[in-house]
Amino acid sequence: MVTVKMLKPYYIKTDHEYVRIVLAYQYFSVVIRDKDYQFIPIEANEIRINRKTQKVENVEAKFAFQNGKDVVYLTMAKLITLPDFLQQLHSIASTYYINEAQESSKEQNIESAIIIEELEKLNVKRLIDKALDEHDEAAFYQLTKYLSNH
C-alpha cells in the first residue's frame, strides 16, 4: 500500500494553460510497506495540471523515491489513484485554476474595452465636426492628430 506522507511544491510555475508544480528533495515523500521514501529528481520532477479542466496532464511521468539504497519508481498514473495525493495536489493548485466565471469576466472586460474605445473615437470625431463648425483650427489639428495616433 502506498500513501503520501508529504507533498509540498519546491515552486509553482503557471502559464495560460497549465499549473506546473515543480518538486525537489525533501518536499515529497511517500510511505510504502511502512517505510518512508523520499522523492529524488532522477526522472520526472514536475506535475502538470490543466488550469481549465483541473486534470493532471503528464500521467506518463515516472517519479523516483529512495529509502537508503532502495529506489522505487511510481508513475503519475499510479499516484493519481491515491485519494490523499489528489487531495493535497488540488489544495496546492486550486488557487491557480481558471473557472468559467473568470473566463466570462475576462471576455466581458475585453468587450467593454472595445466598446469604450469605439465610443471615444466617435466622440473625437464629433469634436472634430464641432471644431470645423466653429472654425477652431487649433482644436481641429489637435483632434485629428489625436485620432490618427489612436
Rank of each mutant, 00 (worst) to 15 (best):
T3D: 09
V4D: 02
V4T: 06
K5Q: 13
K5T: 07
L7W: 07
K8H: 09
P9V: 10
P9Q: 09
Y11K: 13
I12V: 15
I12N: 09
K13W: 09
K13Y: 08
T14Y: 10
T14Q: 13
T14K: 14
D15S: 15
D15E: 11
D15T: 09
E17I: 14
E17K: 13
Y18T: 11
Y18K: 13
V19F: 08
R20Y: 14
R20H: 12
V22G: 05
A24D: 15
A24P: 08
A24V: 08
Y27M: 11
Y27L: 06
F28N: 05
V30P: 08
V30R: 07
R33H: 14
R33P: 03
R33A: 10
D34I: 02
K35C: 13
F39V: 05
I40Q: 12
N45D: 15
E46T: 11
E46L: 09
I47E: 02
R48T: 15
R48S: 08
R48G: 05
R51W: 03
K52S: 10
Q54S: 15
K55D: 12
E57I: 14
E57F: 10
E57T: 11
N58T: 13
N58D: 11
V59K: 14
K62G: 04
F63Q: 05
F63L: 05
F63A: 05
A64S: 15
A64Q: 13
F65G: 00
Q66L: 02
Q66M: 05
K69D: 08
D70H: 11
D70M: 08
V71L: 04
V72N: 02
V72A: 01
Y73T: 10
Y73N: 06
L74V: 03
M76A: 05
A77I: 05
A77C: 01
K78F: 07
L79Y: 07
I80C: 01
T81F: 01
P83F: 07
D84V: 04
F85M: 09
Q87W: 00
Q87E: 12
Q88I: 02
Q88R: 13
Q88H: 05
Q88F: 01
L89Y: 03
L89T: 02
L89K: 02
I92N: 03
A93I: 04
S94R: 14
T95W: 03
Y97Q: 06
I98V: 09
E100R: 08
E100C: 01
E100W: 02
A101P: 00
A101E: 06
Q102N: 02
S104W: 00
S105G: 00
